[in-house]
């Protein structure tokens, strides 16, 4: 039974996330910065009448920031009871993956990626990485958010 995944790109690399986890996709037109927030938190945005925090994937992945373009997207997802957004470079397609296609990543990758990548899958010539969304969003954010 194939599962639909949303494909997005960060710094040229393609990542996937199960479509079931995604609430919707939005264009990124800029976030309102939040004073005292973590460095990888871009700020707050409005999505369909709700205010949600967004995390900058680039900053989270330790990559240099770039100018946001028309392609920039916010992946709005349900994390527990909260709704959060992840700003990526682009997201233009969806992909159906068989469960057996998903394989654990090599230990070196896991170690380097700080547990952000849960599995990798080969789709034809392409290599996509399944991210651990809660970990990418981050404990601190949750903790901070929780503390607040």
């Amino acid at each position: 039974m194939s599962v639909l995944h949303v494909v997005f790109k960060v710094d040229g690399a393609e990542y996937v996330l199960p479509a079931a986890d995604v609430l919707q996709m939005e264009s990124f037109t800029g976030a309102t910065p939040v004073p005292g927030a973590a460095p990888h938190v871009a700020g707050l945005v409005q999505v369909r009448g709700r205010v949600i925090p967004v995390v900058d994937a680039r900053l989270r992945f330790g990559l240099p920031p770039v100018e946001r373009t028309l392609d920039s997207r916010v992946v709005v997802a349900q994390l527990g009871g909260r709704v959060v957004g992840l700003v990526v470079d682009s997201a233009r397609e969806v992909l159906k993956l068989e469960p057996q296609q998903l394989k654990p990543p090599p230990p070196l990758v896991v170690e380097g990626a700080r547990g952000f990548v849960k599995a990798v899958a080969q789709v034809g010539p392409r290599l996509v990485m399944l991210i651990d969304f809660p970990r990418v969003i981050g404990e601190e954010t949750l903790d901070g958010d929780g503390q607040r």
């Binding site: 479509a19 609430l23 264009s27």
Partner: peptide
């Protein structure tokens, strides 16, 4: 975007 959301 619309088509993606529609797919989702």
């Amino acid at each position: 975007l619309l088509s993606l959301n529609a797919s989702i």
